[in-house]
Design a protein around this nucleic acid. Structure first.
Lengths: 212, 212
DNA sequence: GGCAATAACTGATCGTGATCATATTAGATC
DNA sequence: GATCTAATATGATCACGATCAGTTATTGCC
């Protein structure tokens, strides 16, 4: 590896570590770019050669962590017997992670949902999440839990969308607390599995007064 | 009304108009607080006596517009015969509105989802939206389109969440274009009505190889 | 090693959102 | 209407994120 590339890697790593420590200690808004530069031992102008703007630091810092949460969540999801349980097992790690640093979490989520949803940046962290959800859905289909005619990617979005509603409702607006957010998300996923439609009735219950 | 209160109202209205004109012409990021102050005929320090921060100007400017979109959307939704059509009729106005000013729309949506979801600010615009969705669901239940045992508010979130996923996917990340976003949203809503579960089958189709 | 070309770095500087001590104005009291 | 009090307004000022002209370090070539 050339000396240039090596230096660049080292600097990026120093930036990552400095930003990580300062964000965890002082929060996102409470940390200035200059502090990060000082701690990383670079000039103030150098930072923005490595990241486009301050918010991109969030992805630099938390990409690995998020990937770890994917791994652990998917591992837990393997034990689950229903789709809802599997999804909640995947989501649980994020609830835990977010609860420990709510301010940062809100910024990360905003970044992931509004800027990083596409494939081009940060290795498509959100798309990867969606893919994992889709995989869980395919597993559920494979074991006969779901209708065979659904589109897994449409279903994945429907699940993911509920997750990405309840987390800001909890962290951003304070509409619900964590426990309620998790409970409501679970209820929403179960509703999605059951379906809203009058003709889509589980166990063929006897009460069927008005069919269309 | 006292002279003080009258002056305050007039100033707020001047701010609203100035911000509105400048945002539409130059976008949100492209408009500075000082420009708004100049145009509104107030000192630069006065602006932040009326709004907490710049983003709050978005709500000040677009609250009426959003309420108008609610009214018109709900009116269109009355013609619809299915829940999906009714919801899409409500959402359609927003797609139109967002398409005309994508940069502003993204900021507004971010504000609505991440900071304004609660009841305390901006008259709870997002909660009102959710309430309208819930009303459409209740209507569908009343005409027997939906299972009678669902929780309308849980269902409303499930619908709203899909809307609030596809709009950023379109405007923010550029993951899809407008047409595709609308199509995918419709597909998602229809899936939600049908349900994912294997036992929730419409029209009792003959093919039922593996039950549970 | 010397030298030119180019990539990478730097801190001074800029424009911005937001704040604050000070000034101005409206309302209350006599 | 004079005087006092409290609400409101102001522009100078601050801290920050981001930029940029000027500097330093690395590479390839002789």
């Amino acid at each position: 590896m050339s000396l240039r590339e090596q230096n660049k890697r080292e600097k990026l790593e120093r930036i990552r570590i400095a930003a990580s420590e300062l964000f965890e200690r002082q929060g996102f808004a409470g940390t200035t770019g200059r502090q990060i530069c000082d701690r990383a031992g670079i000039g103030t102008g150098t930072l923005f050669l490595y990241v486009k703007d301050k918010r991109e630091l969030l992805m630099l810092v938390f990409e690995r962590e998020v990937r770890r949460l994917y791994r652990e969540g998917l591992h837990r999801a393997e034990q689950a017997t229903t789709l809802t349980d599997a999804l909640m097992a995947l989501f649980a790690g994020f609830f835990e992670f977010y609860a420990a640093r709510p301010e940062l979490a809100l910024e990360i989520l905003q970044e992931l949902l509004f800027r990083e949803l596409g494939p081009e940046r940060s290795g498509g962290l959100s798309l990867e999440f969606l893919q994992h959800v889709e995989d869980l859905i395919r597993s559920a289909m494979a074991r006969g839990e779901l209708r065979p005619d659904i589109d897994p990617s449409t279903a994945a979005v429907a699940c993911f969308a509920q997750y990405s509603f309840w987390v800001p409702a909890w962290l951003g607006a304070g509409l619900v607390d964590r426990k309620e957010a998790e409970a409501r998300l679970r209820a929403g996923l179960e509703l999605l599995v059951k379906g809203l439609g009058a003709n889509s009735r589980i166990d063929h219950g006897p009460k069927q007064k008005e069919s269309r």
